[in-house]
Design a protein around this nucleic acid. Structure first.
Lengths: 195, 195
DNA sequence: TGCGTTTTAATACAGTGGTTTTAAAACTCT
DNA sequence: AGAGTTTTAAAACCACTGTATTAAAACGCA
């Protein structure tokens, strides 16, 4: 069965996630990744294939945990409006606690790798669609039980919430300011208030 | 005084704008730019300095025309809500007509160069602030003349509109779809409607 | 005409990129 | 213990990067 791995795969992927997330694909070199993870580049290639494949693994891992926390909130016991609030609050707090201004890995990917790579583009689109679905279903549920105003179609509202979310992620990458982000969400949630 | 330029500076900058806008800073090489503009890299260096300085010129040029069309709309004769509608419609149409999915140069810069470069970061922030100001002033004007609902503070509304704008720009880079973008703006503008 | 200056063209340069190679090390299985 | 396999470490490879250099070309002015 050959010589056993000396490094912990998850540690390496965690380090790679930080780098790719912070600096993006092009600005991150294999040597950067190897140095961060304290392994040799040969080990990286042996374990994950080439740079693009590694990025793919890292992105998919990020997406999995992101969507998991998404499910936790939206499939949880919280009532529709509360779930939405929790979701946006969590994102704002995450942005404020991240001293590296990393923003959202998926949004970053959307901007600087998706346009040149069909596979990553569809991965990004899939995430956006899943989030939009969660938002739409949650809003629709709230409209059904009378806790959310029905004046606007759930589909439109979900798209606006998705758009605001992406906007928050962009702001998080340059100026994560609590008052700005909270102020942004106030009128957003006012849209849901029934009378 | 000396040998005259053989190339048109504006055309070179136009070509560079397209490349940088489409591919980003890191993924664009000096040779790419030289080839696109059909001049030699020495001419590029002679005329604009190094790569970063050229990017700066290109970005500033982009910002200047972008803010100019912004002024045209918001300082124009249109009534507040109409100005806002014009602005967002123009952005949506621009996204739909661009077959290269370039999105917004400033947003792209915000994601992949601003985080590592303080000068570009403040340039990006300045643009965001200027747009937010236009939006806030316009909304406040509408609230003053009774054409925009006063339930939410203009500052909060402006931030939401900015956020939605940035979100639209992200979507424009991966899936510019008219129905999605229009749907997104519908509840947004519903927020302004007085009764 | 010739000098000073600027632009051009082509090439050079040193560094870095992603990736591969080679050989030694560390294990399993027979 | 030996064969087979996988991982590691170090170095090598080569295309490409940003940038500089050199020399020729093209102008204005004395």
């Amino acid at each position: 069965m050959g010589r056993p791995r000396e490094f912990d795969e998850d540690r390496v992927l965690d380090a790679a996630t930080q780098r790719f997330w912070m600096n993006g694909y092009d600005a991150t070199s294999i040597r950067d990744l190897a140095e961060d993870a304290k392994i040799t580049s040969a080990s990286l290639y042996n374990a994950f294939g080439d740079k693009r494949a590694l990025y793919r693994v890292v992105l998919d891992r990020y997406i999995r945990v992101a969507m998991l926390s998404c499910e936790e909130i939206f499939d949880g016991p919280a009532r529709p409006v509360d779930a939405m609030t929790q979701y946006f609050d969590a994102i704002i707090e995450e942005a404020l606690q991240d001293g590296f201004y990393k923003g959202c890995f998926v949004v970053n990917t959307a901007i600087d790798v998706a346009p040149h790579d069909a596979d990553f583009k569809s991965a990004v689109i899939a995430v956006f669609n899943r989030i939009e679905s969660y938002l739409r279903d949650t809003i629709a549920a709230g409209q059904a039980d009378g806790t959310i105003k029905t004046k606007q179609p759930a589909a439109d509202l979900a798209r606006l919430f998705l758009g605001a979310l992406l906007g928050l992620r962009v702001l998080a990458r340059v100026t994560p300011d609590r008052e700005v982000m909270k102020g942004l969400t106030r009128p957003l949630f006012a849209l849901l208030q029934t009378a």
